[in-house]
């Protein structure tokens, strides 16, 4: 038994390790860029709403429309649909760099939506108190809106990260690898059930860990 476990890791260890690194790379890079895009987008989406600081009906509806459109496309379709764009941005459509663009386009609008629901929770009164103190809108955005909703934003980002891990499973289709791809290729197509079980197990641990970590940070940031 113990021999077979060490045999397994001798055979598959490097592949699993490589896949894990690829997953981390894809999730890490895509998440970072998605936050950079999704966060301001979420702020804009919220503040352009009616009765808000930067009220703009037209902009608000355009943003809503675009976000809803992108969010209704399944990732696997998106992946192929935007190939020319990916090529233009990354110079390649394969490997980890070939999958970042579609992952970002998939995740950023989702983060914007999650941001919107977090930001809308912030008490209107506190914002008003800051306006009454003569504080600039851009400062209010960071020091009140985002600060006060940070606990809920972290929970949103946790959900987005887990969704991103799910999406990377399809990245194998463009040769980007990752745990999902490993489970699919070897476990499913080649009937290496043990490889599939192990990678799925790792994915479960990963998702579980991220959720727990996210909950922990969120609880720590919450002061009420």
């Amino acid at each position: 038994m113990s021999a077979s476990i060490s045999d397994f890791f001798e055979n598959w260890g490097p592949d699993i390790w490589e896949a894990l690194i690829q997953t981390f790379q894809m999730v890490g890079i895509a998440l970072a860029i998605s936050i950079l895009i999704g966060l301001p987008l979420g702020v804009l989406l919220t503040l352009s709403g009616s009765g808000k600081a930067l009220e703009n009906k037209f902009l608000h509806q355009i943003l809503n429309l675009v976000i809803n459109m992108i969010r209704s496309i399944p990732f696997i379709i998106l992946l192929f649909f935007i190939l020319p764009f990916t090529k233009f941005i990354a110079g390649t459509t394969i490997g980890v760099s070939g999958v970042i663009a579609p992952l970002v386009i998939y995740t950023a609008p989702y983060i914007a939506r999650l941001m919107e629901s977090s930001l809308l929770e912030v008490d209107r009164g506190v914002i008003e108190a800051y306006e009454a103190m003569g504080i600039k809108t851009r400062h209010i955005i960071w020091h009140v809106l985002i600060r006060e909703s940070r606990s809920s934003i972290i929970l949103g980002l946790t959900i987005a990260t887990i969704g991103l891990i799910g999406a990377t499973a399809m990245a194998g289709l463009v040769g980007a690898g990752g745990l999902g791809d490993l489970a699919y290729r070897f476990g499913h197509l080649r009937y290496q059930a043990d490889v599939m079980y192990v990678t799925v197990f790792i994915l479960i641990i990963l998702v579980q860990g991220i959720q727990t970590f996210g909950n922990l940070i969120s609880a720590k940031l919450k002061k009420d």
Binding site: G125, V126, E128, M133, G134, I135, R147, E148, S151
Partner: peptide, 22 residues
């Protein structure tokens, strides 16, 4: 200019309106 003028007028509210996270 209005923001400058507002700094010369404090305001308090029924619901206090403090930062929960601070």
């Amino acid at each position: 200019k209005l923001q400058e003028a507002r700094r010369n007028m404090g305001m308090i509210f029924q619901s206090f309106n403090l930062l929960k996270t601070g």
